[in-house]
Amino acid sequence: MKITVNGEDRHVDAPLTIAGLLANLGIAGGKVAIERNLEIVPKSAYDSIGLNDGDRIEIVQFIGGGA
């Protein structure tokens, strides 16, 4: 299936959970926040939420910045 992660199109094998996606990308889940189709995904749901074809995922973190 095709999903969009941080604006980039990616082909991934279904089924895939949020946790699985993070593992594929090599990202530690503890320090990021995730949005799926403009809805926040709670950390507690990373294991249970499966991705669908066409999903738009944003993975963000805190970086340096003032204003």
Partner: peptide, 12 residues
């Protein structure tokens, strides 16, 4: 104060 930005997927 800190900013919120996309994780760099090419260098996680």
């Amino acid at each position: 104060t800190v900013a919120v930005r996309r994780v760099n997927l090419s260098d996680p």
